[in-house]
Design a protein around this nucleic acid. Structure first.
Length: 439
RNA sequence: GACCCUAUCGUCCAGUGGCCUAGGACACUCCCCUUUCACGGGAGUAACACGGGUUCGAAUCCCGUUAGGGUCGCCA
């Protein structure tokens, strides 16, 4: 029997990291086993059910690279994939249950009469769990249909999993206590329930339950925060799962090959954005120039910077080892793309106003204007020679030069920065700076 | 409150009875590299929740306690 798993979010207007991680584990499970990953939208809560809220789910999953084999937008022969469109199916199962005596009416609502017995389940992650249904006080019967005819989650969820041929239900631990109830319905229907695996929840750094407002809780915050999806996905994979060999940066193909539900931890994981940031920086460092530019481009465009790949790549390369989030890039490289860059007042005060600084800029410009080869190594050699010949430290030239051409006291390696800037622009910038800050 | 799950450095993981004076990573501190900021390299601080068993031997198995989380809806 081939594996069929599903991610069944309800549209709430955002995609929670916990949900995304659940989707990711289902997806990995499906890909590992060559099965199907199905997306089903549990949109029975009419108030929150908006096109925008559903779009957020699509966007989040697609961003993380979690493509679904069946579901909205891609179709499939077990649809429809929106619960609001599955009424006739629920009706059919409802009648079946009612006619075989499992249901009874109570104040207009329909309730499912639990079998009063012990329900044993063998969870893929938590192991054997037994729930005692013999006490009606502790486990009262369950409503499955409201007086207005609408369906309760437990019922619709079970019917959908059954109808869609779901073989493994991998979901958050918050459903662990619900599962025996679901198994009861499967048994009443005379159907073998799927295998269940409950993954631990993701907690805030302080151990509290992560909710909407918490930092890093929403997938949108990663999309808008300048993260590389492959980095975030890699970090999420390691939240509750590991390859067992201490490696952390892993290519997706390898994760798919090694992923296994039995390797999922039973302990809730505290979310650590600092580590997620580290993954992002690592991925950026190891990224191809094309991918790096591709991810940087939207940020540059938004900042009003437009240039050809040929112009962009050398500049971006200068910052590759320093960037943690793509959103930092426009600010880091802006001075390359305008001659009207601002001078940081603190840098001016500390460096350009230093006695002799402007004069040294003139000496450096003289040296550099004579150069025929304007590459980093030459630039460094000449600057150091110049400093030595005048008996001053290279820093006396380096710092003013940096401020002169960039307006800042921090930035890329000076010589590489000048090489990328080119001789003409370098000399023009030094010249203009000298005039502007001449004593 | 009842029921269920869980319990190794601050955090994420490794560890499934002897290889553990507990390993890796993030974060933090220090050093090196670098006359910027980073990257990189090196070093360091830091944990088996507690109490009982079982065993020649326990982080690993059992019981209890404590703590954390989850579920108890005509929400999903």
């Amino acid at each position: 029997m081939s594996v069929r798993v599903r991610f069944a979010p309800s549209p709430t207007g955002y995609l929670h990291v916990g949900g995304a991680r659940t989707a990711l584990f289902n997806w990995l499970f499906a890909r590992h086993h060559g099965g199907k990953f199905i997306l089903r939208i549990e949109d029975t809560d009419k108030q929150r059910n908006t096109p925008e809220a559903i779009q957020v789910i699509y966007d989040g999953l697609r961003w993380l690279g979690l493509d679904w084999d069946e579901g909205p937008q891609v179709g499939g022969d077990r649809g429809p994939y929106f619960q609001t469109e599955r009424d006739p199916i629920y009706e059919r199962y409802f009648e079946r249950l009612r006619d075989s005596g499992w249901l009874y009416e109570d104040a207009g609502a329909w309730r499912f009469r639990f079998a009063r017995e012990l329900i044993e389940m063998d969870d893929l992650i938590c192991g054997k769990v037994t729930i005692d249904f013999t006490n009606t006080e502790i486990t009262p019967d369950m409503t499955i249909r409201r007086p207005d005819g609408s369906w309760i989650f437990h019922f619709a969820n079970v019917v959908d999993d059954l109808e869609m041929g779901i073989t493994h239900v991998i979901r958050g631990e918050d459903h662990l206590s619900n599962t025996p109830k679901h198994i009861q319905i499967f048994k009443a229907l005379g159907v073998e329930p799927p295998r269940y695996g409950h993954i631990p929840l993701i907690l805030n750094p302080d151990g509290s339950k992560m909710s909407k407002r918490d930092q890093g809780a929403s997938i949108t915050s990663y999309i808008e925060g300048g993260y590389a999806p492959e980095a975030v996905r890699n970090y999420f994979c390691l939240l509750g799962w590991s390859p067992k060999d201490d490696r952390e940066i892993l290519p997706l193909e390898e994760i798919i090959a090694r992923f296994d539900v039995s390797g999922i931890n039973r302990k809730g994981a505290h979310f650590d954005l600092a580590k997620c940031d580290w993954f992002n920086a690592q991925y950026i460092q190891q990224m191809s120039a094309d991918r790096y530019r591709e991810l940087a481009l939207p940020w540059l465009t938004t900042a009003g910077i437009s240039a050809s790949p040929a112009q962009l790549d050398p500049v971006l390369a200068l910052e590759k080892m320093k960037v943690t989030h793509f959103r930092e890039i426009p600010d880091r490289v802006s001075f390359f793309f305008t001659e009207d860059y601002p001078y940081d007042p603190a840098a001016v005060e500390k460096t350009l106003r230093k006695p002799g600084a402007i004069e040294r800029l003139g000496q450096l410009a003289d040296t550099y204007s004579a150069l025929e080869l304007f590459d980093a190594a030459t630039l460094e050699g000449r600057l150091k020679e110049l400093a030595a010949s005048l008996g001053v430290k290279p820093a006396e030239f380096i710092h003013p030069a940096r401020v002169a051409v960039s307006g800042r006291s921090v930035g890329p390696s000076l010589y590489h920065m000048l090489e990328v800037l080119g001789q003409a622009r370098t000399l023009a910038r030094i010249d203009r700076t000298r005039k502007q800050f001449a004593a």
